[in-house]
Design a protein around this nucleic acid. Structure first.
Lengths: 136, 136
DNA sequence: TGTTTACTCTATTAGATTGATAGGGTAATT
DNA sequence: AATTACCCTATCAATCTAATAGAGTAAACA
């Protein structure tokens, strides 16, 4: 299941990407437009800023804005920040690999085999889509 | 993240599919071979039996066995029983569809758009794999 | 320079889910 | 009749999620 954090984060990014000018957008505006709890959205936008997707401006006329061109924002990167690993099990994760404690041999593990295919299928989707594609 | 329930369920199914004869296998044997909590495995096998994947035999020499040929057991069906919906959001689910309360229009929703692609990618993997493929 | 605006951070919380465990009940085989 | 092994209910600690509250801080503008 997709977490609300990811859902809200994606919506906020899409909202910012859809802006015609590059002026900062207030949290409250995004929260209202997308039906998101403002406080919860604050923390999400903060983490997106800390991971380099967004910039922020304080004070009057402040808000958040996209740092990169929407065409340059890959879904792989966004999903890894918001949702965490793309793989469904750590033993097939590229960026968060971890050996299963209970599994004696990955090469013969049926779960590993299936989840490897699932991971690759998901990666292909995320790699072939940018923020620009989502608002097209 | 894949739940342990699904992970264990898949392992158990693969274990049963790998049997040369069709004799029932005891829960304790599967639990031991796959490093699974026996009691937890009991409940998983029970749900697999209730959903038509497994049969069981009581008494001495009893246990669980596959009802269908491994080649006939689609991962789509297994995953839906063990893990639930394949889609990451209800608004793109084929079998568990539900409208998002907060989203005014699915047609223009960026999350919906992305998750639709993800669902299709996952479905393709699950549709093209049977239990027999996992133990090959 | 001071006030307003809006981002920043910490802490807390209720609720749901997960994974595991315990203990007894029941049906079928020998 | 006894044994074996499936069947079912209840409980529990731990974790995660989503939301909320409240105080702090930096920047803009008059």
């Amino acid at each position: 299941m997709l977490s609300k954090k990811t859902k809200y984060g994606l919506k906020a990014l899409a909202y910012l990407a859809a802006q015609t000018d590059k002026q900062p957008v207030q949290i409250s505006e995004i929260a209202k437009a997308e039906n998101i709890s403002q406080k919860f959205l604050e923390s999400i936008l903060l983490s997106l800023r800390k991971s380099g997707f967004l910039g922020s401006k304080k004070g009057k006329g402040g808000g958040y804005y996209l740092i990169k061109d929407p065409k340059e924002v890959l879904m792989t990167d966004v999903m890894r920040i918001l949702e965490g690993p793309i793989a469904m099990v750590p033993c097939v994760s590229l960026n968060f690999y971890e050996k299963c404690a209970d599994c004696p041999d990955e090469a013969t593990c049926s779960v590993n085999k299936l989840m490897l295919m699932v991971r690759d299928a998901n990666l292909e989707v995320y790699r072939n889509n940018t923020l620009a594609d989502l608002i097209a």
